[in-house]
Amino acid sequence: MANTQTALKEAMTTIEGSLGVALVDYSSGMALGTVGGGKELDLTVAAAGNTDVVRAKVRTMEQLGLKDGIEDILITLDSQYHLIRLLKGRDSQGLFLYLALDKNRANLAMARHQLRKIEGDLEV
């Protein structure tokens, strides 16, 4: 029964190597909550920009006729991982968690697992 800020803070502290995390409304591109980030990573800009990534993928799947859902999207940079996890169970709202990780410190499998747990905490 965490509130959003607590759940995001938990993501920052329990996920090794996390640089910032945001809960984003994917229709409007608004960050409903952010923790971390900073000068190098403006999470509100990242949130707005990454809605286009999610939308493009959703649209492509529609065009391909894939009736599947997207669990997460991974973007690998030279020094970071960006992990986008679409929240289920609240189809009408369309939210995703956006997590930026330091590639050298992060364990991707653990991060995915913990992000799934945090989604559960949000109970959205």
């Binding site: 029964m1 965490a2 509130n3 959003t4 759940a7 809960l23 409304d25 409007s28 608004m30 409903l32 609240r90 709202q93 939210l95 905490d121 949000l122 109970e123 959205v124």
Partner: peptide
Amino acid sequence: LVDTGRLSDAELEICHLGALF
């Protein structure tokens, strides 16, 4: 709604923020 378990804190916040903005 939160105290009776109908909504979680997070859901109330998210929905309220959505409506507010």
